[in-house]
Design a protein around this nucleic acid. Structure first.
Lengths: 210, 210
DNA sequence: GAAACAGTCAACACCGTGTCGAACCCTTGG
DNA sequence: CCAAGGGTTCGACACGGTGTTGACTGTTTC
């Protein structure tokens, strides 16, 4: 969209909406969500504060849209994941977990803000909750089929195990992204998480291949 | 402190301070920290809003004081814990984890609020961080001595393992307290967590007794 | 060319936080 | 006994962020 002569060409609504999202993700790279005001987002998108409300109902709404994109990316990549749990159980789990780590690391600001926003915002909570449930379900299914083929021991409920491990990943990754103390460095996280998943699912470091 | 005649006896500063803390913990049982205003705390303690500031610098300061008590309780009970990892490894870990679950369940509101407040408040973050570090250190030491006596396999760094497991506990317990979806019910959490700890520390469900 | 529509923003109302200064006790020592 | 001084209290204010309103400006459609 080029300016012609002196006259500014009117920018379309979609571009404005996008400009707000871009500004938000960018600002989230440098400061916390709470430290970004609607004024900041509006200014970044080249509009006034009231106009912001024409595009989003609230600041949380912007975060929700960003989170939606991140989750969509994860879902897409979950679908594309090569699955060979019978032939290479350890490698398959590691690849799955690695994908999560990659996506969240590449959207660090949004991930951190969204996970923190869960506590106060119902929609963010619901969105994240739905995603977690789908990941936990995926894990549960794999654990059950590993048990069915005799590769993994029975014992605790597979669903409970899957949920706990997924929650662990969420927390360990968040701690790494936030550079908390204590935390596992981003580079070592994948290795540690995989080991815990494999040991607690198979009861051993070397799950049998088919 | 009894009232004599018509005249109200002046209440001491310590009692006021305590009244604020009591009000806060009580209100946290019914609503989220963000939904409690300083006005609410002041009213609950029978004082005006400006007077609140005489006792605490901010709302977060109140939470910090409450969290401090909870952590102190955990530390005290960690010290009182019977330790017999060589004679009964599984039972010893389960008792440790069970203690954490108990304390956090019994201070549900404070725990949830404090863990959420970490994201925005440096002092809360530092306090929690120090506590987590001390628990992770305790876990690391036990893991190392279990490895030294040949009961647990080597492999990943003991510190990383301990940190991850502690972070998992934090998250799983928080999810249970918040009644999130997905989450493990408070009653089943202990069992699931213990199993994961034991499998990932010992690589088996039945760690050898000495 | 007028009606309908998308987009924009100055001005306003509101709410919660934090501050300030003037009071109001209650001791204490002269 | 009372005056001084510290501990305590709060009305009134300033501030910053959110969300709303209503009037205005271009743009499209028939």
């Amino acid at each position: 969209m080029v300016q012609r002569g002196r006259r500014a060409v009117r920018v379309s609504g979609d571009e404005r909406q996008d400009a707000i999202l871009v500004t938000a993700e960018q600002l989230l790279g440098t400061r916390a969500f709470d430290d970004i005001s609607i004024e900041d987002l509006a200014r970044g998108a080249g509009i006034s504060r009231p106009t912001f409300y024409f595009y989003f109902a609230s600041k949380d709404d912007v975060l929700l849209a960003l989170l939606d994109r991140v989750i969509a990316e994860v879902e897409r990549r979950v679908g594309e994941l090569p699955r060979d749990f019978e032939g290479d159980p350890a490698g398959s789990w590691t690849r799955s977990i690695g994908m999560f780590v990659e996506v969240f690391v590449s959207h660090r600001g949004v991930s951190i803000a969204a996970i923190a926003a869960r506590a106060r915002n119902n929609e963010v909570r619901a969105l994240w909750s739905r995603a977690m449930q789908s990941w936990a379900e995926f894990s549960t299914d794999v654990i059950l089929s590993e048990r069915a083929r005799g590769a993994a021991p029975h014992g605790i409920d597979a669903g409970d195990l899957a949920v706990s491990l997924n929650l662990m990943n969420e927390r360990v990754i968040t701690a790494a992204l936030n550079r908390e103390t204590p935390a596992i460095g981003e580079s070592r996280a994948l290795d540690v998480l995989s080991t815990i998943w494999i040991r607690s699912i198979y009861g051993s470091d070397n799950p049998s291949r088919q």
